[in-house]
Amino acid sequence: MAKICVVGAGVVGQATGKGFLKLGHDVTFVDVDADTVERIRNNGFSAIFPEEMALGDVEAVFISVSTPTGEDGINLSSLDQACRDIGSALTVCQSRPVIVFRSTILPGTTRKRLIPLLEKAAGDGRVGEHVCYNPEYLRERHAQGDFDRPRIITIGQGDRSEDAAHKLTGLYRPFNAAVYRCSYEEAEFQKYVNNLFNATKISFFNEMREMAKSLGIDPTRAFQLTVRSAQGMWDPLYGTHDKGLYGGACLPKDTNAWIKYMEESGLNPIFMQAVREINRSMGGA
């Protein structure tokens, strides 16, 4: 069994660590927050502060610190500090664990920012050979169950980190989930596509719900039937192929008719206006 460190003991970090604990691995949580460290210890788990990290016999380090978004965009300060802490710990050990970033980060962040930070802090230009990006797909209220029973596992790697990705694949093998390996940038991009699609779908149905209420219609039954009737619902690959813009006899005319009807009814179909604008901006109707 492997010795694992989980840096960042929030929802994702604890689900990750406890998931590996169930498989018999030796897991230590690392966090900067004293209350978090104390709470984890009180629950019978191993928890330390970053300055206490010793990586000499650790096989994998999972980093799941927060990357909040503010007025200036994504805030990577906690992730930067985690890289410095891990790099510092690497300076005093000969072995090299697999370093696995799980935080949601924009495409290019692992290659262009995090690996250089790690290598500078460690004083070792080969640390990048041990780095993978492994996005999480955990729902906040069901994080542990989602980690224990993953739908898929995505591993982003670089040209130098083939062996690290192979080792990480081995750690995940007992979960019996399909493992997909791709570049750092593809994995980082996919995580955003995953989250933004969820946000898009929620916003679409929220707008439709508001429109229905304004028209005096209960949308519940219509939504239930849409799940069964719309190809975009029952065909998971619908719209993902590179087949160009939406067109044909139905979609452009019905989109335009709906927008016109809503506007004449004194309503503002923002979502559908944006859908049409995207199609038009790319040469569609």
Results as ranks from 00 to 15, higher is better:
residue 4 I to C: 01
residue 14 Q to E: 09
residue 25 H to W: 11
residue 33 D to S: 08
residue 33 D to Y: 11
residue 39 R to I: 00
residue 40 I to K: 03
residue 40 I to T: 06
residue 42 N to M: 09
residue 47 A to N: 01
residue 47 A to E: 01
residue 52 E to A: 15
residue 52 E to P: 09
residue 59 E to K: 12
residue 60 A to Q: 04
residue 61 V to A: 10
residue 62 F to I: 06
residue 62 F to M: 08
residue 63 I to D: 00
residue 67 T to W: 11
residue 69 T to E: 12
residue 70 G to H: 13
residue 71 E to T: 12
residue 72 D to Y: 13
residue 74 I to R: 08
residue 75 N to G: 05
residue 77 S to H: 07
residue 80 D to G: 05
residue 80 D to S: 10
residue 83 C to W: 01
residue 86 I to W: 04
residue 95 S to L: 13
residue 96 R to N: 02
residue 96 R to L: 04
residue 97 P to F: 00
residue 99 I to D: 02
residue 103 S to D: 03
residue 105 I to T: 10
residue 106 L to E: 05
residue 106 L to M: 13
residue 111 R to L: 04
residue 113 R to Y: 03
residue 114 L to W: 00
residue 114 L to Y: 00
residue 117 L to C: 02
residue 119 E to S: 03
residue 122 A to L: 05
residue 125 G to D: 11
residue 127 V to Q: 00
residue 129 E to T: 07
residue 132 C to K: 08
residue 133 Y to D: 01
residue 134 N to G: 01
residue 135 P to A: 11
residue 136 E to N: 06
residue 141 R to H: 09
residue 141 R to D: 13
residue 149 R to P: 04
residue 152 I to V: 14
residue 159 D to K: 15
residue 172 Y to Q: 06
residue 172 Y to T: 03
residue 173 R to L: 11
residue 175 F to W: 09
residue 177 A to N: 05
residue 178 A to H: 10
residue 181 R to K: 15
residue 182 C to G: 05
residue 182 C to N: 03
residue 187 A to W: 03
residue 187 A to L: 07
residue 189 F to M: 15
residue 193 V to F: 12
residue 195 N to V: 09
residue 195 N to D: 06
residue 203 S to T: 14
residue 204 F to S: 04
residue 208 M to I: 13
residue 208 M to T: 10
residue 218 D to M: 06
residue 218 D to R: 10
residue 229 S to Y: 08
residue 229 S to R: 05
residue 232 G to D: 08
residue 234 W to A: 10
residue 237 L to Q: 15
residue 238 Y to T: 07
residue 249 A to Q: 14
residue 250 C to M: 14
residue 252 P to N: 08
residue 253 K to W: 15
residue 256 N to Y: 02
residue 258 W to T: 14
residue 264 E to W: 01
residue 268 N to R: 14
residue 273 Q to W: 01
residue 277 E to S: 11
residue 279 N to S: 14
residue 281 S to D: 09
residue 282 M to P: 00
residue 284 G to Y: 06
residue 285 A to H: 07
